[in-house]
Design a protein around this nucleic acid. Structure first.
Lengths: 183, 183
DNA sequence: GTCCACATGTAACTGGTTACATGATTGG
DNA sequence: CCAATCATGTAACCAGTTACATGTGGAC
């Protein structure tokens, strides 16, 4: 049940329409909670029905017409409740590690190319994050809420750093491996 | 489409019944691809219907009766195909980072306790992994397929190490923060 | 006036979760 | 025989994905 709360957070940062939210999910928030526009519209409808957000009255609602939303006090309260509530960490799912484990059984043929591709993608993501860090968090002076945001960004940077290192190491190991199990 | 392939991998490592698989998912494979027994039974049915696995003939099929499966050549081929196929990394979803971002807006009240709890859980998981490493990968002599398994385990260890460090750092930051936004 | 980008939405499907049902086997 | 445990399964639900539908407004 995280998507509605991701949307509430985004709307508190800045009231937006569905499409604006979609774009913001593609950038900042989507780095750790992605969503498509279909999901977002569906969820906006639910949140409005529950009285957590409302459409800004200025805009008239029609199909091709922009509709912006803002968070109501009930929505903010719900977000605060959810943030403070204890949640168990969900079990992890990583297809790449699963594939590696499968490769240990059926052979590593063909995997190396995709490992290289993933390495490149993680390097690019890392470079993006580091650019954001330089732009938004110049050393020295963070306001309290900026320090929290910086902390979140650091998690992203460190995770991408981990993956680039791990993939590099994995590829080195692959290079040493005998050409096992071509099928 | 990863669960069937996780099951094929597990069955290739050792033919098993549904419940045995469930237990193995709770231990090793489930560390990066968890599944409940309901999912596993459903998927075993599909895999059998597709001709990827078959029930070992020795056991008679009945409701309270154990039924073991083994992988057929078609199943092994499918697993090899999937392992070698290029797959895009799925966008990441992390509720904890999302909550932190929400806390930057609605206040950090109540979050610290749960961060501590998560830290403890990650420490425990890390300790488990390290015990497995000592047991299964004593330094010096890995067979080729064991080196791949070791690589996967290293990913788990390094990820848990990252989380314990990051959470420790986050808690230090929280300690310095003014008691912002109690609601 | 036609095409394209913007913007909001519907519908069908897939995979994962939760709750419950059913039968077999074993220990007391 | 009764309870507990092993073992297999059904059903309902929910969240995320994919494909498609519909309307508006501006560029040419």
């Amino acid at each position: 049940m995280s998507l509605p709360h991701a949307i509430l957070t985004a709307l508190l940062e800045k009231p937006s329409s569905g499409l604006e939210l979609t774009r913001r999910f593609d950038r900042s928030i989507g780095y750790f909670w992605s969503a498509t526009h279909q999901q977002i519209y569906r969820e906006l409808g639910k949140l409005e029905a529950e009285g957590h957000i409302r459409a800004l009255p200025s805009e008239q609602p029609a199909r091709g017409q922009k509709k912006s939303y803002e968070v109501l006090p009930a929505g903010r309260a719900e977000l605060a409740r959810w943030t403070a509530a204890s949640q168990d960490p969900k079990p992890h799912r990583d297809p790449l590690l699963l594939r590696l484990r499968a490769a240990a059984v059926v052979g590593t043929a063909g995997l190396e190319a995709d490992l290289n591709r993933h390495l490149e993608l993680h390097r690019r993501q890392l470079a993006d994050y580091e650019k954001i860090e330089q732009r938004d968090f110049p050393p020295g002076k963070d306001a309290p809420h900026d320090r929290i945001r910086h902390l979140v960004l650091r998690a992203g940077i460190d995770l991408e750093t981990f993956w680039t290192q791990w993939l590099t190491h994995a590829l080195e190991e692959f290079a040493e491996l005998p050409e096992s199990g071509t099928t």
